[in-house]
């Protein structure tokens, strides 16, 4: 049942020009950044070769690319998630889901899975760029996959927040702005702290993403993302239930 809803969400995305546009724009921007990094490697090739323990090509390219990808997707994910529930509420199609023999949990998980599939597709296309380097060299697989895993977790978190914001309103634009605001806030939380050890810094999304880029898989970071996702999914379910109970 979750799968049924997820595939419809995915199909709805691809039936509108939105998904294609997003895929294309994100790919172009990230390709530009990727090529910039390649150029950098070429420029300093000689100097790198002379260094004692020079950073590998993966280390130069992948963390930077994925770091930028996170920022770009922070801007883009709200556009993908804004319609999830808000548009159904606006078009009054929610009744179809509510009067079918499915639970709120299945509805929410289905919608979440649909968006997640799309984001993973985006991620796969993004991964193709560093993979193309295999044509002329080797990659540090550990660093590469840890970075991708980090980005996947981050995107799942984005999607969960976006889904929740979408359940709050019937205007997709409002959902998009709220999601963007919430994500940006989560991202920059640590800017306020003086040292690095404040509560805010600990809550910051960015601080739990960075270790993945450096190739460090800390289970605490993974748990942080899992908790964030679960929290917002549960909130979404509660919110839809309230829809039915409240007025």
């Amino acid at each position: 049942m979750i799968f049924t809803i997820a595939t419809r969400e995915l199909r709805a995305l691809f039936l509108s020009p939105l998904a294609w546009t997003i895929l294309a724009v994100v790919q172009v921007i990230l390709a530009f950044l990727f090529l910039g990094r390649i150029e950098l490697v070429q420029l300093y090739q000689a100097r790198l070769a002379a260094m004692e323990s020079a950073p590998g090509i993966t280390e130069i390219i992948v963390p930077d690319l994925l770091g930028n990808a996170a920022i770009v997707l922070l801007l883009v994910t709200p556009l993908l998630t804004m319609r999830l529930v808000a548009e159904e509420r606006r078009n009054r199609t929610l009744a179809l889901l509510f009067s079918a023999p499915i639970s709120m949990t299945e509805i929410v998980l289905g919608k979440f899975a649909g968006i997640l599939l799309f984001l993973l597709l985006l991620l796969a296309m993004l991964a193709l760029m560093p993979l193309s380097l295999l044509l002329g060299g080797a990659l540090d697989w550990g660093l590469f996959f840890s970075g991708l895993l980090g980005l996947a977790l981050l995107l799942a978190g984005f999607a969960a927040v976006g889904l929740f914001m979408s359940t709050l309103t019937q205007h997709p634009a409002v959902a998009a702005i709220a999601t963007f605001g919430a994500l940006l806030l989560f991202w920059i939380l640590d800017w306020s702290g003086q040292g690095g050890a404040t509560v805010f810094a600990y809550l910051s999304l960015f601080n739990h993403y960075k270790p993945f880029l450096e190739g460090v898989f800390d289970s605490a970071d993974a748990v942080y993302h899992a908790l964030l996702i679960t929290t917002f999914l549960v909130l979404s379910i509660r919110r839809l239930d309230v829809d039915r109970l409240g007025g």
Binding site: A12, R92, L94, P101, I102
Partner: peptide, 22 residues
């Protein structure tokens, strides 16, 4: 037991819940 009850139920709301893009 909403699941069993809703399986026996068909509902057409005031405005039909249609996905226009399908």
């Amino acid at each position: 037991d909403p699941r069993a009850a809703k399986a026996e139920l068909g509902y057409l709301p005031e405005s039909p819940p249609l996905y226009r893009e399908l």
